[in-house]
């Protein structure tokens, strides 16, 4: 199990746990929920922010937020 900020390109992950207190509700509402699949679409220069596809939803978040999401590589 790793945190989401460590995911690399061409890896597919599954969200295992999220830290509700530290995540914006908006992110949860956009599908960042345990059980959903996630992969990395692209990294901005300096590896931040991250452009992710979570459960089919294309969005970008900063790595410090991604640290609060635990995933399992599949």
């Amino acid at each position: 199990m790793i945190t989401l900020d460590l995911i690399e390109k061409n890896q597919l992950g599954k969200i295992v746990a999220i830290d509700t207190d530290l995540l914006p509700l908006k992110l949860i509402e956009m599908g960042c929920l345990p059980g959903n699949e996630v992969y990395l679409e692209q990294l901005a220069p300096l590896k931040d922010p991250m452009y992710l596809v979570i459960d089919g939803c294309h969005l970008a978040i900063r790595t410090e937020i991604a640290k609060n999401i635990k995933i399992e590589l599949i």
Binding site: P24, K26, E41, P49, H58, L59, A60, R62, I65
Partner: peptide
């Protein structure tokens, strides 16, 4: 203040 940066990347 906490960072809550989330942005949709629309088609």
């Amino acid at each position: 203040s906490k960072t809550y940066f989330v942005i949709e990347m629309p088609n």
